[in-house]
Design a protein around this nucleic acid. Structure first.
Lengths: 228, 228
DNA sequence: ATAAAAAATGCTGCATACAGAATACAAAAG
DNA sequence: CTTTTGTATTCTGTATGCAGCATTTTTTAT
């Protein structure tokens, strides 16, 4: 039987066996999503045979994808016993947030110095759209734009390594944040912080932007603290 | 013929086919070393067949190791064309050093707060030994201890994520630093900075330690600037 | 002789096959 | 009834085989 959850790897939709993306690469993204969305639960083993059949691929590219994710820190390799989805304790999350905060503070400073005027205007547009979604109480889209803005500020810092590390932590924390839905009043506070962020960026006030970003993430930390 | 450079994977030395480490894991370390030491030059292709034969392993575990290193950022995966050793430009190195600097500054602050008295004493011992090596003009051992001290301070920060990221950057930069041999006067300056670092740690003066670490790395940056 | 086309070679990507380790199960002993 | 030991099964780890893409070389036409 053709399982519904088999991987779909067709860059341009449809006809023929045209393929530009490698299967193992597709699997990396697919598995990452599965872990983030909780389809693969923390602590559960990644059964090569079963999982491979489920996704309609052989073990070889699947194993390669798992090794890749192991280096990313999403799964753990246990010798002779395969791979398990890494489980994050409260301390682990706290550690990640501390580093993430520091990275974003750095990103804020660099962004104020290096961003072009156009780029700042684009950030403002993104922010305004997020505000719209907030007013419409569209949590999912809000969340998505929120993340885009944070990633965007890091991008403006124009530092490849910084972007990479930020992305990595963002990915690991997604699994946590996915759960953490905040209350209305805290949500409002977060939005206010975002407004402050954009204003600081527009003024190219690096100390203020850095401070707001730090505070913003510090608050996020407080929220999660109870959830984990 | 048994090639001299074939991988050696025997955890406890010697007799029999007792093995606890997986081959792909051994290969990750082996290949990483080969890249750091420049045996595999930047931009060169990792030929699966040839390299596998050279190391005495089949392509499967080799490919898995390559995927792992790709996630680490040491090699680049080119679709349908295999893997090449990633080449770092001046901008890349600068980016890494900026982030590394920030991470070490953070580590310094946390270390002052979280390190035990014993651990600080151990760092002092390590530092004193490094000074001995400096006086003996033993560059290699000096370099090794130097790195150990930096890694050690990060360890004292007791933050798993921070350690991991630091390690990652340290690994990538090793390839560069390996080349960068500094002059006598700059070497003396670096040693003085180290002395200052340990003193700040002993005083648990987090602002000062953070500042020194930042300055220390900032100077390293200046040195490399010309080399790359 | 140069350029374009076609064939040939080599390599990557994926699947399959096989060997050894780990786990689960069952039977027997305490 | 619990514990232990032997066996069977399952899964991981590694090797090999085959198909398709990339590149290079050869052939052919202008």
């Amino acid at each position: 039987m053709d399982d519904a959850s088999s991987v779909d790897r067709r860059p341009e939709s449809g006809h023929g066996p045209i393929r530009r993306t490698a299967l193992h690469d597709t699997l990396v993204n697919h598995l990452r999503d599965m872990i983030i969305e909780g389809i693969l639960e923390p602590g559960s083993r990644l059964h090569e045979g079963q999982l491979g059949e489920q996704l309609g691929v052989s073990r070889t590219p699947l194993r390669e994808a798992i090794k890749f994710l192991a280096s990313e820190g999403l799964v753990e390799l246990v010798p002779s016993r395969g791979a398990v989805v890494k489980r994050f304790g409260a301390k682990d999350v706290q550690d990640m947030l501390i580093v993430l905060r520091n990275l974003e503070e750095l990103a804020g400073k660099l962004a104020c110095r290096l961003a072009s005027d156009d780029e700042i205007i684009q950030m403002r547009a993104l922010h305004d759209e997020m505000i719209d979604r907030y007013r419409a109480a569209d949590r999912l889209q809000y969340y998505k734009l929120n993340q885009e803005i944070h990633t965007g500020i890091v991008r403006l810092a124009k530092n490849a390594t910084l972007s990479e590390m930020h992305q990595m932590l963002q990915t690991r924390l997604k699994r946590i944040r996915f759960i953490g839905h905040e209350g209305a009043e805290k949500w409002a506070a977060a939005v206010a912080e975002h407004e402050e962020m954009v204003k600081a960026l527009e003024a190219r006030d690096e100390d203020r932007l850095s401070e707001v970003l730090g505070r913003h993430l510090g608050n996020a930390w407080e929220r999660v603290r109870s959830a984990v």
